[in-house]
Design a binder for these strands. Structure first.
Length: 246
DNA sequence: TCATTAAATTTCT
DNA sequence: AGAAATTTAATGA
């Protein structure tokens, strides 16, 4: 898939006007406490681009120290193991942040970030963020909020991976994804992220075939509905199932 | 229970 | 048609 280069896009994909950019910046959760004038100043120095679906936003070869702010879209964070296997660490949605492995930010330098769909992304240098935090402590608190959430998710994942069956891990993953990206649809919640069985396997430490088999098993008992790159989950049912098979 | 291997089949572009 | 995604089946740890 085409490699996306930051921040070389000049003409294509940039926010159309400064006004647009201002509006988008104000919608970034991190910045909701900032006043208009500060936002305007930020808009001048913060590049913002639309990233085409499937392209890589950062890879380990990129210089670290850049914090990316995801305004709109889905981003998948993953690592590649020595034997060439991808491990998906997280799928992020609107308002989340990634990159930067120093004082702020979460994750390690050997991480890849790939746009799952067309994304709108801002990039800020780490030193700019820390400057901003010193001046506006509320920005720091927002950032802590975002990062804390991520830590909680990862803790849950570790726990799940270490003692649950594949079926349990899949249900837990789907519950988690549906609370982030779910769209209510009758008694089911559609997960609004195009995921292959391979993707799911890489998130729960299993294999494509096992995921296929488990999903169709869950499909048969009505706990999920599956289609090509489409999954809907019956949340209540899965929660109940996870609760009593402990 | 689940990874692995192999192969067939379906669905997308 | 060709590629990608999904499914099925057999085997062994």
């Amino acid at each position: 898939m085409a490699r996306f280069r930051w921040p070389r896009y000049k003409t294509k994909g940039v926010a159309r006007t400064e006004g647009d950019k201002l509006w988008y910046l104000s919608k970034i959760n991190l910045f909701v406490d900032l006043d208009k004038a500060t936002l305007r100043r930020l808009a001048k120095v913060v590049p913002m681009v639309t990233v085409p679906r499937g392209s890589t936003i950062t890879s380990p070869s990129d210089p670290s120290g850049v914090l990316y702010l995801l305004k709109r879209g889905r981003v998948r964070l993953f690592k590649i193991t020595p034997d060439g296997h991808e491990i998906t660490m997280a799928v992020l949605g609107d308002g989340n942040v990634f990159g930067a492995t120093g004082a702020v930010g979460l994750g390690s330098p050997d991480m890849y970030a790939q746009a799952v769909d067309s994304c709108l992304v801002c990039a800020m240098r780490e030193e700019d963020i820390s400057g901003l935090i010193q001046k506006y402590p509320k920005v720091g608190l927002r950032l802590i909020g975002v990062l804390s959430q991520r830590v909680r998710e990862l803790e849950g994942l570790v726990e799940s991976l270490s003692h649950e069956s594949v079926k349990g891990r899949i249900m837990r993953l789907l519950l988690h994804l549906s609370s982030d990206f779910g769209v209510a649809d009758g008694e089911y919640t559609r997960i609004d992220v195009p995921l292959t069985h391979e993707d799911i396997a890489s998130m729960i430490g299993s294999t494509r075939e096992t995921v296929t088999a488990t999903l169709s098993e869950l499909n048969n008992v009505g706990l999920v509905q599956t289609g090509r790159r489409k999954i809907a989950i019956q949340r209540a049912g899965c929660e109940a199932q996870l609760a009593d098979t402990q």
